[in-house]
Design a protein around this nucleic acid. Structure first.
Lengths: 358, 358
DNA sequence: CTGAAAGCGCTTACAG
DNA sequence: CTGAAAGCGCTTACAG
């Protein structure tokens, strides 16, 4: 584990900036310039005690004059906080999580915190290692975006430092869970197709071991039942949230000769794959088949045709997760909550018309 | 600038892990257990001096027994290195840069380094601030992905710490530039269309203030000239690398009543927008118009129809940039180089056939 | 090859 | 309200 790097002696001969641009100005220099003790400077910096007005002014001036910026590394060592928050995501290049990372970065940076992103690669083992890395870097808290880690593992790390987790419901001390109503989203999407007159609606499911996958399937079933239709397993094709699985699912569906006039895919990536599958089999969207996705990725707007999808506010999710973390850090109980799902209707879904082809 | 956060007293009462799982084991404890001085442990950890075999063994055992993992924060303060590398990207949620971030993370992590990502938001001012943040966090080096920063600004920071920059050619001490042959890529794409018999090839350009944008235009022109065709400004529509600009460009193109049988877009995102534009105007790809993109994003494979594109190995770019940084850090002169461009032919381009429609 | 000591730049009880 | 002092966990000249 503790692999000693093979990196040779670092280049340290580098010229030390002679400019006054910060970096090398220390708190001691500030305290000297202001004629107060380092403790006082520190207290002003951290708002950690009341300080007389004249000293405060002197310090503020000295800080401005010298262009002092506190060294987070030293702060981390001395104070136990690093002003950095670990973020474990599945893949940093995921079109879905990307937006969340963006939201986290935005919210955190205004509070003076920096995110430290690590990729869990969809594996619990990997995620556990990520958490070790983050802890060794002494992050002040950890945000886990829909991890594979068990609830108990999460609760355990929440005993050490604040944890915010998205994509699941879970209560534990020091931990805040932020969940999106996947059930309702899927219900909305299915209901939309039903209200357009579709009766045979295929469902390309996500990974059913994944809570999002399960909930979205449940939403689909619920809408069907509410409309008095029975659930037909033959119309449900399992996928794993990737484009490739969406494509494969549609091919299996068509090969099964099951009749259908609409497809609801449990996420946009699978919907894109499904769209290609239909295109390859010469079925037009929406003329022959209506198609609805879930997540409303940026790419949905430019799909051909533009994809009807359940809007999942990922960027906002990121911001809220960061906000919750900030609250946890100050000892407050987070109050943030996810917005409710809404459907964005575009051009991939339309009224049911009896097929002109089988 | 140095905004004192309004964060109140942090929760520090948190239970300190009583488990043996590392985190709280210090180098001193290791040295005590192994019966050597802390200096010796440090030297073994850093390979910074030759140590007798028996001491080394004792220390290795103690490290393993105690599950010691060095605290990077302390290392950062004491040694001046933090084992973290700053990465300034434009947008962490960009489909293009995402892959590069992934590559950087992969390569860095095997060397024990962590990336610290910050988003430059396509603005030089913002990027400058990012660099300040990174330096205040004492990163050991900075990787800049195609920034807006001037060459001289980059060269200046390279005097302070190692810099690797992608997407431009530039020589300066302490700096390594890694560039992709955008000219050749664009030439390849255009040549592909020419070899299919297309003669009137429209070009949706990227931002022409951006080096990539300029080079890709140059490649397009060069291929045209090599084929004995003259460059027609009326066939060139400016875009800015976004889907929306690709869509708008195609609409302007069609409205201009200029005839064309193929479109080459300077990146995939614009090609996607262009594809939608054609679809809206009832022009089919590739039956009526051939379409070629640049970058070969993951999404190109699932576009409708799958998009012919110049492959830009972004993930590899990230890995190479990280590798170069690692070399710089050890005082070596980086030797890595980008692979040459190659075209991936899919279904959006085909032989020219005289139009059946205007 | 190996220690003792000083120091990296802050923060935080502890005493006023 | 404010200092002096110790300490966070390491690294690195400085002397053997």
């Amino acid at each position: 584990m503790a692999n000693s790097q093979t990196v040779k002696a670092p280049v340290r001969a580098r010229r030390r900036a002679a400019d006054g641009l910060g970096s090398k100005v220390t708190l001691d220099m500030v305290s000297a310039a202001a004629g107060v003790s380092p403790s006082t400077v520190s207290r002003i910096l951290n708002g950690t005690a009341v300080v007389s007005d004249d000293k405060r002014k002197a310090v503020d001036r000295a800080i401005a004059d010298l262009g002092f910026v506190p060294n987070p590394v030293a702060r981390g060592l001395a104070g136990g906080r690093t002003l950095s928050i670990g973020v474990v995501t599945q893949a940093i290049d995921s079109p879905f999580y990307g937006g969340a990372l963006r939201g986290i970065e935005d919210r955190l940076s205004v509070a003076g915190y920096s995110p430290l992103f690590v990729s869990g690669q969809w594996s619990a083992t990997h995620e556990a290692r990520c958490i070790d890395t983050l802890r060794s870097r002494r992050v002040d808290g950890i945000i886990v975006l829909t991890g594979r880690l068990s609830d108990s593992a999460l609760a355990a790390t929440a005993q050490e430092l604040p944890v915010v987790v998205t994509g699941r419901t879970l209560k534990a001390p020091g931990l805040y869970a932020l969940d999106f109503d996947n059930f309702e989203g899927a219900r909305l999407a299915t209901h939309h197709l039903l209200s357009l007159g579709h009766r045979r609606i295929a469902f390309v499911s996500g990974d059913l071991k994944h809570p999002d996958g399960k909930e979205r399937l449940r939403g689909y079933r619920s809408a069907l039942e509410a409309a008095g239709l029975k659930y037909e397993p033959g119309l449900v094709m399992p996928g794993n949230f990737t484009e490739a699985s969406g494509l494969a699912a549609v091919e299996r569906l068509i090969d099964s000769r099951e009749s259908f006039s609409a497809i609801f895919a449990a996420n946009d990536q699978m919907a894109f794959g499904a769209g290609l599958g239909l295109h390859r089999r010469r079925m037009r969207v929406p003329e022959d088949v209506s198609l609805v996705g879930f997540d409303d990725l940026a790419a949905a707007v430019y799909a051909i045709p533009p994809l009807t999808s359940v809007h999942h506010p990922v960027q906002e999710l990121g911001q809220l997760a960061a906000a919750a973390m900030l609250q946890l850090l100050t000892g407050e109980t987070p109050t943030v909550e996810m917005p409710v799902p809404r459907l964005v209707v575009r051009e991939s879904s339309r009224e049911y018309r009896p097929a002109r082809r089988r």
